[in-house]
Computed example of a mutant assay.
Amino acid sequence: MTSVEICLDDLAGVRVAEEAGADRVELCAALAEGGITPSIGTVGGALRAALRIGIQVLIRQRPGDFVYDEDELQAMVDDIHSMRALPNPSGVTLGFVLGALRADGRINADATRRLVAACGEAPVTFHKAFDQLPDRAAALEQLVDLGVSRVLTSAGASSALEGADGLARLVEQAGDRIAVLAGGGIRPANAAELVERSGVREVHLRAPLTVATVAAGAPTAYDHGSREVTSGDVVRAVVDAVSGAGAGAAPTAAGERLA
């Protein structure tokens, strides 16, 4: 069985994704700028809304690179602690999505270890900063040693489908030690092919739908007249597409249940 994770920054999308059959969401803010940490109120709202679906929270203090100074790193640690303390009425899986690099392009092991420690028993995903690394095979081993649960990647390619061969190599290397979460350009039309070619058991995508904003009047710098929400139809189509695909693939990373 292939699990589906939906990346979103609209709070209503948590219920939409759950009702459409997704397994997890990655909750972000400001996806138009690549995504940053959502507010604690947004995370609290997502935990109240979720009945089954796992909530993965992006921990990224600002847009731009993934090289953080001490103040930024401490802010991210504080965010993790604050979010872990929130009420979780349905007891859904709360996890975190993070990544820290050094100026020379390698994983910042000290920063990553500190962030992972702040997460406690919560599952940790190392995000697509992984694709900037020159030696992803070595980096995968480092992430295993650091206690990371999964890595989000297209194997350095511009899309997951283009990186299918590289993803297959990562899946084989990972075994059941760490999950490989494929992300990048995944749509209903190509999701099953990607799973079959790469052997991944987890896919990650946005499912955007553009809708008109409610307020009347001419567009402004703050209200362009439309916004993006999560499309239940797209989520459902991907869930259906990958259902049964890659049935012989490796199991999810040891110690973590599917949401």
Rank of each mutant, 00 (worst) to 15 (best):
A118T: 14
V97G: 08
P219K: 10
E172F: 00
D9M: 09
G64L: 04
C119Q: 10
G44S: 15
L31E: 09
P38G: 12
E33G: 06
V229M: 00
V43F: 11
L115R: 12
A191C: 06
G105F: 01
A138M: 05
V171I: 02
A85M: 10
G185W: 08
L101T: 01
A12E: 15
D165C: 00
S158Y: 00
E70D: 14
R84Q: 14
S90Y: 14
E5C: 13
R48I: 09
D104T: 12
G163P: 03
S198L: 02
E33F: 07
R102I: 03
H204A: 01
S198D: 02
D78E: 15
H127I: 01
G232R: 10
L98P: 05
S82F: 04
V116Y: 09
A174H: 06
E256N: 01
V14T: 14
V180Q: 10
Q61D: 09
R48F: 12
R187L: 13
L152P: 06
G183Q: 11
T220G: 11
F126I: 04
A182L: 10
A207P: 05
I55F: 08
G183C: 10
L73C: 07
L98R: 06
G13T: 10
L51I: 00
V4A: 07
V180S: 07
L115E: 14
G156K: 05
F126R: 03
N190Q: 03
G45Q: 08
A212H: 12
E26S: 10
F96I: 08
A117R: 15
A155L: 00
I6H: 14
A30L: 09
A32F: 13
R201D: 05
R177I: 11
G175Y: 12
D131S: 08
D110C: 03
R197V: 00
Y222N: 09
A216K: 12
V77Q: 13
G175T: 08
L161I: 02
R48V: 14
L181Y: 05
T252G: 13
A189C: 02
Y222M: 08
L146K: 10
G44Y: 04
A245S: 15
L205A: 05
A174E: 02
Q61T: 06
A215V: 08
L146S: 09
H224K: 06
D10C: 12
D79A: 14
A49E: 13
V211P: 05
A212I: 00
R197P: 06
D78G: 05
R236W: 01
T42V: 14
A20G: 03
A237C: 06
G64T: 01
L86Y: 13
G244H: 13
A139T: 08
H204M: 02
S90F: 14
V239F: 11
S226G: 00
L143W: 11
D65L: 00
A139I: 03
A122D: 15
A253M: 06
V77L: 08
A46R: 03
L115V: 09
A250Q: 15
R177D: 13
Q142D: 12
Q173Y: 01
I107W: 02
L94Q: 05
G54P: 04
A117F: 06
H204F: 03
A247S: 15
V229Q: 00
A259H: 05
V180K: 01
V151N: 07
C28R: 13
A216P: 15
A20E: 09
A259K: 01
A245F: 07
S82G: 08
A138T: 12
E193K: 04
G248A: 13
L194A: 06
G248D: 15
R187N: 05
G34C: 08
D10N: 15
